[in-house]
Amino acid sequence: MENILSVKSLKHVFSKSTAIDNMSFEVQRGEIFGFLGPSGAGKTTTIKILTGQLHPTSGTALLFDVPSTQVNQPKYLKKFGVMTDNSGLYNRLSVYDNLHLYCELYSVENKQKRIDEVLDMVNLMDEKRKVVSKLSKGMLQRVTLARALLHEPELLFLDEPTGALDPANSRHIHHGLQELNRRGTTIFLTTHDMLEAESLCHRVAFLNKGKVQLLDEPSKLRRKYSDDTLTVELVTGEKRILENGPKGAQKLYEYMSSGQVVTLFSNEPTLGDIFVDVTGRSLV
């Protein structure tokens, strides 16, 4: 697999504090890569370094094999899209005007059609002609997302794309992002929502205090940190924990043959549980 992004020994120090500390990882072309970490972990700082908005104190980050410090040339800027806390919109203009400007800046063809497509993807067709200053916070976030998608980038950086959204809109956007990914866009997203990471990301990195503490596929992580037991809930309302082995199988056979089982589930930890396990910190 080709690496679209590769980060080596990255470090960033703000005047006093170290925000990114010896960070290394790779993102493969075609994947949805999740950066999971609590507030202040360094998620936004990482995106800003990767997209050339900040120069790292030391270490390197390569995007399309180009150092992030040289990525701010038109030919590379065309290939990626970014949405972070500093992606502002023009308040006095309409949603359409905002998007139209970006179509021109990115030389998007078939502007009207593309604007409709992205608006549909973020579920904002009805707000097309509305002035931006009249939108709610979640709507603003969705317009910013739509804007980042306009030029169909190869690589998309999203900083907490569903942070201000209700569950229905989050789900709508998750579907959209998956569709985008199927059509070839690599997505790098940050979140502190473990469910989002679990349902959306092919691989996740756990970030804590500027360090990547763990990196793998969500299902592999869950298996790795699972304690290999099952829980059965019986008709009496009791819960029994069964070991994976002959003893547990025997018990389960007994419960099931006497028709006592109501539900049965594996005790795989959630990503949130694993995060606490590994970092000693909770995600939010």
Binding site: T51, P74, K75, N86, S87, N91, Y102
Partner: peptide, 11 residues
């Protein structure tokens, strides 16, 4: 309004 960044990040 944080819009200059968008112009800078565009081609």
């Amino acid at each position: 309004k944080n819009t200059l960044r968008g112009l800078m990040m565009s081609p």
